[in-house]
Computed example of a mutant assay.
Amino acid sequence: MPPVTTFIWVAVAVVAIGLYLSWTAGRLDRLHARIDAARAALDAQLLRRASVAQELATSGVLDPAASIVLYQSAHAARQAEDEHREVAESELSQALRAVFAEPDAVEAVLAAPGGEETVGELTQAVRRVPMARRFHNDAVRAARAVRRHRVVRWFRLAGHAPFPLAFEMDDEPPMAFTADGAAGH
């Protein structure tokens, strides 16, 4: 084989490998951007849920014990540092389930002025958190799958981006705010 033909084949192989590496790095970059967007959406939904819960706890509609439990859990969820956020959000989910385990609590909120609006907001918030968390964790799973490939590790295509972590929390809504429950038409 003449040296010119060998050179052309080597050049074609180098260009093909370069294009593949560039495409993979771009894909990984898009996945990291998707994770960032999904995390921002999750944070917004978690903040909304905690804000509505705090507002409800301070409204005077619930009994004092339920108000204190709900307020403390919501406040802790809003103030939690990243490393403690999953636990704090899980505790808020548990507090919401405990407070709204009794149908009387939902009825008391609905009977109060602006109660239907508050229940509607809380229903939307507790329903959107699991969806937002699922979108985030799906994006994390996709990025992890790409980052596990040898080529990505060998050529360090992820750069200095931190390894993506899933957000694991108890996001089970109170029965009263699910599709099977009475609230949130």
Rank of each mutant, 00 (worst) to 15 (best):
A13M: 11
A13P: 08
A13N: 09
V14L: 14
V14W: 13
V15I: 12
V15A: 10
G18R: 09
L19N: 13
L19K: 12
Y20G: 10
L21H: 13
L21V: 01
L21Y: 09
T24A: 11
T24N: 15
T24W: 07
A25E: 15
A25S: 15
G26K: 13
R27H: 13
R27S: 07
R27C: 04
L28N: 07
D29H: 15
D29K: 15
D29M: 08
R30E: 09
L31Y: 10
L31T: 02
H32N: 15
R34Q: 10
R34P: 05
I35V: 15
D36S: 13
A37R: 14
A37I: 06
A38W: 00
A38C: 12
A38P: 08
R39A: 00
A40L: 11
A40V: 03
A40W: 06
L42E: 06
L42C: 12
D43V: 01
A44H: 10
A44L: 13
Q45A: 08
L46I: 01
L47A: 03
L47H: 09
R48I: 01
R49C: 00
R49W: 03
A50P: 04
S51H: 04
V52Q: 03
A53F: 01
A53G: 04
A53V: 05
E55M: 09
E55H: 11
L56P: 00
L56V: 00
L56K: 02
A57C: 09
A57H: 03
A57Y: 01
S59P: 04
S59V: 05
G60N: 13
V61C: 12
L62G: 02
L62T: 00
D63W: 15
D63N: 14
P64N: 07
P64H: 14
A65M: 15
A65C: 10
A65Y: 11
A66Y: 04
S67Q: 15
S67M: 15
V69W: 06
V69E: 11
V69M: 14
Q72H: 12
S73D: 06
S73W: 00
A74H: 05
A74L: 06
A74C: 10
A76S: 14
A76R: 10
A76W: 04
A76T: 07
A77C: 13
A77Q: 04
R78P: 04
R78M: 01
Q79C: 00
Q79H: 12
Q79V: 03
E81W: 10
D82G: 09
D82Y: 11
D82F: 08
H84P: 03
R85L: 01
E86Y: 12
V87C: 02
V87F: 05
V87R: 06
A88F: 05
E89V: 02
E89S: 08
S90A: 06
S90W: 05
S90P: 07
E91Y: 06
E91T: 04
E91D: 12
L92E: 00
S93H: 06
S93I: 00
A95P: 02
L96N: 02
A98F: 06
A98W: 01
A98G: 07
V99A: 08
V99Q: 06
V99I: 05
F100V: 03
A101Q: 10
A101M: 12
E102V: 11
E102S: 15
D104P: 14
D104W: 12
A105C: 12
V106D: 10
V106N: 08
V106K: 12
E107L: 14
E107R: 15
E107V: 05
A108Y: 14
V109W: 14
V109K: 14
